[in-house]
Simulated assay, not measured.
Amino acid sequence: MDMIIDGRRRSLGGGLEVGRILPAASRRMVGPFVFFDHMGPVDIAAGVDRSLDVRPHPHIGLSTVTYLFSGEITHRDSVGSTQVVRPEEVNWMTAGSGITHSERFETLRAEGGRFHGIQAWVALPVEDEETAPSFVHHDGADLPQWSNAGVHGQVIAGSAYGLTAATRTHSPLFYVHLAMEAGARAEIPSGYSERALYVADGEVEVDGLRFGTGKMLVLDHPASALQAIRSSTVMVLGGEPIGRRYVYWNFVSSSRDRLAQAVAEWRSGRMKLPDADDEEFIPIPDDLPSPYSAIG
């Protein structure tokens, strides 16, 4: 075991809180994964106020990956996409040179229900940081699944367990959802320089130690398997390092100057908002820590 990361509660405004896993003080990235938020679980009552929605906000230099265990959310962005994402589906949005988007609880606001999922950010390689923004939705049909000995798995992106997802990635990585019955055992993919697993629910054992909900385990190379102590939901991820990145709010870049440009563009209203969401947006908070810190 290399290290253990505990989630820190963070508010997204409007009453929605997440468990912020990456970046952490002890570990800023795992492969190209620069950000990892555990959303919920939270029970949303029918008729809840729209303040729970994540209003339009910008990104550069990364891809956002939204994956749900329960509930649904409506995505809208500045390249014209409107898409509902449901459990075991993937919204993969590449910000590149710049994109804005919102995430709305339209169905849950109307009907009520439980919301639970993960949003990760994958930093883009230097040569792809300014690629044209794009959005792709995967409904699960092209995300390979398997079931064996109490483990049901789905490859969200990259290659693992002898399977490859259709999700387009820009650097070597893997990202997998494991639903494990009590007592089930699963291998941890090898062949990548950096690896981690996150216990979204339940309890697992790795190298004779037990870890519960909300723990991310950054793995050293001898770690090769995990076992579920009880029914568990585990995300396994990793990949190859892509070098130093600077992060400020929702912006990621290998260049501090590029971050400063993005901040100026958002503050001056020069970044296009989603067509259906152009009446409100999230301003850059005034209480952010010192800008443009390096990670990686």
Rank of each mutant, 00 (worst) to 15 (best):
256 R>K: 10
98 G>Q: 06
25 A>Q: 14
123 A>G: 09
114 R>S: 05
198 Y>F: 15
267 R>V: 11
168 R>H: 04
57 H>S: 04
57 H>R: 09
33 F>R: 03
28 R>V: 05
134 S>Y: 03
285 P>V: 12
201 D>L: 11
100 T>E: 02
296 G>P: 06
296 G>D: 08
178 L>V: 06
296 G>V: 13
79 V>K: 09
179 A>H: 02
155 V>N: 02
221 H>V: 05
50 R>P: 13
81 S>K: 03
42 V>N: 07
96 G>E: 14
283 P>L: 07
139 D>T: 05
136 V>P: 07
278 D>V: 00
70 S>W: 05
22 L>F: 01
144 P>M: 09
89 E>I: 03
208 G>F: 08
108 L>G: 08
132 A>R: 15
199 V>P: 01
268 S>I: 07
230 R>Q: 14
32 P>S: 14
173 L>R: 01
94 T>P: 00
32 P>F: 09
236 V>R: 05
159 S>C: 02
215 K>H: 12
43 D>Y: 03
146 W>R: 13
287 D>Q: 13
121 W>S: 04
284 I>E: 14
247 V>D: 12
85 V>C: 09
144 P>F: 08
27 R>T: 05
250 N>H: 02
110 A>N: 12
267 R>D: 12
160 A>H: 10
72 E>A: 13
198 Y>H: 08
140 G>N: 02
237 L>W: 00
198 Y>P: 11
180 M>E: 09
148 N>R: 06
114 R>M: 08
136 V>D: 07
28 R>D: 10
288 L>A: 03
61 G>Q: 07
95 A>C: 10
267 R>N: 10
135 F>G: 00
215 K>I: 08
195 R>P: 06
288 L>R: 03
8 R>K: 12
11 S>D: 10
119 Q>N: 09
208 G>A: 01
85 V>N: 10
34 V>S: 15
267 R>M: 09
184 A>S: 15
247 V>W: 12
84 V>G: 05
146 W>F: 14
149 A>E: 15
8 R>N: 11
86 R>C: 05
147 S>G: 06
9 R>T: 12
123 A>T: 08
223 A>F: 00
37 D>F: 13
240 E>G: 11
19 G>P: 00
208 G>E: 02
31 G>W: 00
256 R>F: 02
48 V>M: 12
70 S>N: 12
230 R>Y: 06
70 S>Q: 11
124 L>T: 06
276 A>G: 07
98 G>M: 07
88 E>A: 13
43 D>Q: 12
258 R>C: 10
181 E>Q: 11
59 H>A: 08
